[in-house]
């Protein structure tokens, strides 16, 4: 799974233009937080966030300073 390149991912995902940094702000720090049976603790998530900050930039090639509207609007 980790052998996928970013390009391959973009080809497979419906919303490849959603910037990864923006997505991570939301999926790692947003959403309903419930103590599931197996969850990353908040501390773990913070660690992931911190250790990824630089990596994310290398994956996405930096923050794209342009608007990103998803094709499908939640109704």
């Amino acid at each position: 799974m980790s052998a996928l390149t970013t390009g391959e991912l973009a080809a497979r995902t419906p919303h490849p233009h959603v910037a990864l940094v923006d997505l991570l702000d939301r999926v790692l720090a947003g959403g309903v937080v419930i103590a599931g049976d197996v969850t990353l603790s908040i501390a773990d998530v913070e660690l992931v966030r911190i250790s990824l900050r630089a990596l994310v930039h290398s994956v996405t090639g930096g923050i794209a300073a342009h608007d990103g509207f998803l094709p499908t609007a939640p109704t």
Binding site: L9, P14, V27, V56
Partner: peptide, 16 residues
């Protein structure tokens, strides 16, 4: 989730 490629895959699939 500490592997950037895997994290991106997981985050994007979750998001989709």
């Amino acid at each position: 989730l500490t592997d950037p490629a895997d994290l991106e895959l997981v985050a994007r699939r979750h998001h989709d």
